[in-house]
Design a protein around this nucleic acid. Structure first.
Lengths: 189, 189
DNA sequence: TCGATGACAGCAGATGCTGTCATCACATGG
DNA sequence: CCATGTGATGACAGCATCTGCTGTCATCGA
């Protein structure tokens, strides 16, 4: 919390999102972002270790998911624990409009797409540690988490396109779709 | 096929892997790699667009998987098509020892880990296009592919640890594990 | 033999990122 | 109301990645 100039970090984030939208990520220099936020280039790096990180602040999602996983009782399957955790993930989403802007900017830049994947991997790591604390073997934990993340991506993509659906419904729907897809012998007709 | 100095690209790859192993990725400069391979820094960028790419040449895996997916008949489920494609993926793996060195170097550097994830995402994109050509809807294709990749990671991790197992067996085993994990109600006892 | 092509080196420059040090705004205690 | 400390900020310098351009030389084709 800055002492006399308020919310420098927020100003940098907003300026960066704006500039990335209009000029693209690569064609926006750090100096430009800083100037637009009324700061020097050097100060940008006091708030973010990295030009890309300006779009990836906060750990709320990770913290939320880990807390949810740790909250359910020991009789629950790892997979079910993850699904119920994901079911309430929309609590930490910002507005759909904000998410959409962000998704578009990220999709437009390979460098940002990489960072996005790394962030997901970080969350997966945190969840893996949480599951291991429940006694799940490491490799199995990773596996179940990867699958849960796949479900989450499916649900999120639908959620961005469909303003009316509940996120937890979409999670359940994706899980059902998965069970169908992996069923040993899908009777074609 | 170079005309008077042979295999400059291969020399750069080997020098880079060596240097990354001994010094780490960040502490190795492009100039150093080039010198070790007997070239100028500028020439490195003729062969690789990017310092990281030196460990990620070739599309054999992607080409193999796409070809396999396109080879199976239309009656086969997308999920099954992906599994059979993955079952023969070890044909394009190099030696286990080489893979292990590579995996270790990549795991030791966040920057390389990012690039690894992007490469996987590229493969996922290519597979999605292949499935769409079979008439699978885009979102569903992505979803099934994400799940198949999760299976593949599980199998690969086991394969690196267990020299005796067949890759296709490990794929089948992971698929079975998945079916069990997502089963509606796992009777605990 | 001569012109085209491909492989390479060297140089200059933009940008990302880091270290260092001075400076400034404010809070506090006197 | 002022002195002093603390932490945020800025100015400056420096290194590395990556790019564009130019020049040089070996080889190839006619």
């Amino acid at each position: 919390m800055p002492r006399w100039e308020s919310d420098a970090q927020g100003r940098l984030e907003r300026a960066a999102l704006e500039l990335f939208e209009t000029q693209g990520f690569e064609r926006t220099s750090v100096a430009q972002i800083a100037r637009a936020a009324g700061l020097a280039e050097r100060s940008f790096y006091r708030y973010f270790p990295d030009k890309r990180e300006v779009l990836f602040t906060g750990n709320e999602l990770e913290a939320h998911l880990v807390a949810q996983v740790e909250a359910v009782g020991p009789e629950v399957t790892p997979f079910e624990a993850l699904l119920t955790a994901l079911g309430t993930a929309d609590e930490v989403f910002r507005s759909r409009e904000f998410l959409l802007r962000r998704v578009r900017v990220i999709a437009a830049s390979p460098a940002l797409a990489e960072r996005d994947l790394i962030k997901l991997a970080d969350i997966a790591g945190a969840l893996a540690r949480a599951l291991e604390r429940r006694g799940v073997e490491s490799g199995e934990a990773r596996f179940v988490i990867d699958v849960a993340i796949s479900i989450s991506r499916r649900a999120t993509s639908r959620w961005l396109a469909d303003p009316d659906a509940t996120f937890s419904e979409l999670i359940a729907q994706a899980a059902a779709e998965l069970r169908e897809a992996v069923a040993p012998r899908a009777p074609v007709r």
